[in-house]
Deep mutational scan, measured.
Amino acid sequence: KVLVLALYDYQEKSPREVTMKKGDILTLLNSTNKDWWKVEVNGRQGFVPAAYVKVL
């Protein structure tokens, strides 16, 4: 399983997205889209901007 680090806070803007806080460790589920990556955080799955996270 691939983990990513949240570099910035992100507030979800649609039901398909998830909120994350800077420093959160998320599970990367899909990174085929260069702009939006699907992650799991706190038991929820959704998209975050790829530029806001870094693969650990």
Rank of each mutant, 00 (worst) to 15 (best):
K13F: 06
F47G: 01
G43D: 10
R16D: 15
A50D: 02
A6N: 01
Y52V: 06
T32Q: 14
K54N: 10
Y52H: 09
L56Q: 08
K13L: 15
A6M: 02
M20Y: 01
S31R: 08
L56S: 05
Q11L: 13
A6R: 00
D9P: 07
V55R: 07
G43E: 07
Y52G: 10
V2E: 10
L56G: 03
L28R: 02
F47N: 04
L29F: 04
V53A: 03
F47P: 00
Y10P: 00
L3Q: 11
P15S: 15
K21G: 05
F47I: 08
W37A: 05
A6C: 08
K22H: 07
A50L: 02
E40Y: 08
K54A: 15
G23V: 01
E40G: 06
V4P: 00
Q11E: 15
V41C: 08
V18Q: 03
K1A: 15
D24W: 10
R16I: 15
Q45I: 12
V48P: 00
K54H: 14
Y52R: 06
Y10R: 02
V39M: 02
T19V: 03
L56C: 07
G46E: 01
A50W: 01
T32L: 11
L3F: 12
V39H: 00
N33D: 15
D9H: 06
L7Q: 05
G46Y: 03
N30D: 12
G43S: 10
K13R: 15
D24Q: 12
D9L: 02
V2N: 08
W36T: 02
R16G: 15
Q11Y: 15
S14D: 13
Q11P: 07
V2S: 09
A6K: 00
L29N: 03
W36N: 02
A6H: 01
N30C: 12
Y52L: 14
T19Q: 05
G46A: 03
T19M: 04
K34S: 14
T27A: 09
G46K: 02
K1W: 07
L3Y: 14
V48D: 00
Y8V: 14
G43W: 05
W37Y: 12
N42H: 13
T19S: 14
L29D: 01
K21T: 12
K38M: 15
W36M: 07
P49T: 01
W37G: 00
Y10F: 08
L5H: 05
L7T: 05
S31W: 11
P15H: 14
K21Y: 11
T19C: 05
T19H: 04
A6I: 02
N30W: 07
A6Y: 01
N33H: 15
G43F: 08
E17M: 05
V4K: 00
A50I: 03
D24E: 15
Y10S: 01
V18C: 06
E17R: 04
D24L: 04
Q45C: 09
L56H: 08
L3P: 04
A51C: 10
L26D: 00
L7S: 03
V18F: 09
W37I: 06
M20H: 01
V39F: 01
A50T: 06
P49V: 02
N33S: 10
K54R: 14
K13N: 11
E12P: 14
R16P: 06
V39R: 00
D9A: 07
A51K: 13
S31Y: 10
D35A: 10
L3N: 07
N42P: 09
V2W: 10
V53T: 05
D9C: 04
Q45N: 10
E40V: 07
M20I: 14
K21R: 14
N42T: 08
L56D: 04
E40S: 07
K34G: 11
A51L: 12
V41K: 13
G46T: 02
Q45M: 14
Y8A: 13
L7P: 01
K22A: 15
S31L: 07
T19R: 07
E17G: 10
E17H: 08
K21C: 09
V53P: 00
Y10Q: 01
A50K: 07
E17W: 03
K54D: 09
L29Q: 05
S31H: 12
D24M: 10
V55D: 05
L56R: 03
E12D: 05
P49I: 02
P15R: 11
V18G: 02
E40W: 05
P15D: 13
V4F: 05
F47C: 09
A50Y: 02
T27L: 11
A6S: 05
M20T: 03
P49Q: 02
A50S: 11
T32K: 13
G23M: 04
L26I: 11
K54S: 13
E17Q: 10
P15E: 13
Q45Y: 09
N30H: 09
V2M: 13
D9V: 02
Q11I: 15
Q45F: 11
V4A: 13
G46I: 04
K21D: 04
T27K: 08
S14G: 13
T32A: 14
R16W: 15
D9R: 03
N33T: 07
L26Q: 01
L3M: 15
G23W: 05
A6Q: 01
V48S: 01
N42S: 12
V53Y: 00
D35F: 13
S31M: 10
F47S: 04
N42D: 14
D9W: 03
A50E: 04
N30T: 09
V48A: 04
V55W: 06
W37P: 02
K54F: 11
V41S: 15
V53D: 00
P49R: 03
G23F: 05
V55K: 08
L56M: 09
V2T: 15
E17P: 04
L28Y: 02
A51G: 10
K13M: 15
G46H: 02
L26E: 00
K34R: 08
V39Q: 00
Y52M: 13
V4W: 04
E40M: 08
V48Q: 00
L3K: 10
V53S: 01
V55E: 09
V41N: 08
G43Q: 09
E17C: 06
D35Q: 11
V4L: 14
N33P: 05
K13A: 11
D24S: 06
W36A: 03
Y8L: 13
V48I: 12
M20P: 00
S31D: 14
Q11D: 15
T27S: 10
L5R: 09
V39N: 00
E17N: 06
R44K: 15
V4N: 01
L5E: 15
K21Q: 11
Y8P: 00
P15K: 10
Q11C: 08
L7D: 02
G23L: 03
V48R: 00
E12I: 07
L7I: 12
G43I: 05
A6F: 01
D24T: 07
W36E: 05
K34M: 11
K38R: 13
Y8Q: 12
F47A: 03
I25M: 08
L28Q: 01
K54G: 12
D24R: 02
L26Y: 11
R16K: 12
V48C: 05
L28H: 01
F47E: 05
V41G: 11
L56A: 05
L7K: 05
L26V: 07
V41R: 12
L26M: 14
E17Y: 05
R44N: 08
N30P: 03
L7V: 08
P15A: 14
Y10K: 01
S31K: 12
I25F: 06
N33W: 08
V2G: 12
K1G: 09
L29G: 02
P49G: 01
K1E: 14
W37C: 04
K38G: 06
Y10H: 05
T32V: 10
R16M: 15
L3I: 10
V53W: 01
E40L: 07
N42M: 12
W36Q: 04
Y8T: 10
L26F: 06
L29R: 04
Y8I: 13
K1M: 12
L5D: 01
P15G: 13
I25E: 04
N30M: 08
A50N: 03
P15Y: 12
K38Q: 15
E12T: 10
D24Y: 05
L56P: 04
L56E: 05
L28E: 01
E17A: 06
L7W: 04
